[in-house]
Amino acid sequence: MKGEGAKNLAIQALLLLNALVMLYPLSVMVLSAFKSNNEIFASPFALPENFAPVNVLRMWQETAFLRYLLNSIMVTLGAVVAIVVFGTMAAYAIARYRFRLSTAVFLFFLSGLMVPLKLAVIPLFIQLDRLGLIDTRLGLVLVYVAMGLPSAVFILTGFLRTLPGELEESARIEGASELRTMLQVMLPLARPAMVIAAIQNAVPIWNDFFFPLVFISSDRLKTLPQGLTVFMGEYNTDWGVLFAGLTLSALPITLVYVVLSRQFIAGLTQGAIK
């Protein structure tokens, strides 16, 4: 076992090196947000001379960053709430009741898992245009709901099927309505699966750039990743502001991730590991 210690040391070194490769670029991003152009170009590896938030303030005041941020929050929140609510409703019907076409309905939802919706962007564009929903947040939300429902229904149906039937029966015997049985007895037990379904969808929606690029053209409706492309073009000679923009854009999801890393990792790798 003599070699074991040296080997573990080598593995630790490898992991540390990897951590450095992952974190160093991000720390340079944050530090450069406090630098002037001169500082960035002349001494890229140095710490900033001071931590006055000049660039951040300029971002905040001169660009529509706040509006992009609010749009992203609205769209993501709206879509994720709709996915979890509609997904849970459908999954509950499929998992807890016997009815004709039950399997067909389930398969209809699952078929969405096979389709990369990005490749259907042309008919989606035409569909939204017919409904008058091009260049609206609602149109974007509906597309995300369609994108997220299949996996949500899949996860939630699987989970709801594992709940024991006795709970439901005793609630019914006590005279609770179907709605009350669902809301007060069954769904509280399904909370872990709902959290997984929410995170699994929230991250790709929050980060998505493709659908806003195609569907949203008004500046006041743009989401954060999309707004970032506008602003990276406008400030392309002012690197401190660019780094400030990248840092501020990365901040919200990074903070949530640090707090909920376990749920994030479980949620995002869920489909791949089972």
Partner: peptide
């Protein structure tokens, strides 16, 4: 329970795919 989910899937997955 099924209606909202099915409506979204029909309008924004099935129909576009066929189209």
């Amino acid at each position: 329970l099924l209606l909202p989910g099915l409506a979204v899937m029909t309008l924004f997955v099935a129909a576009p795919l066929v189209s």
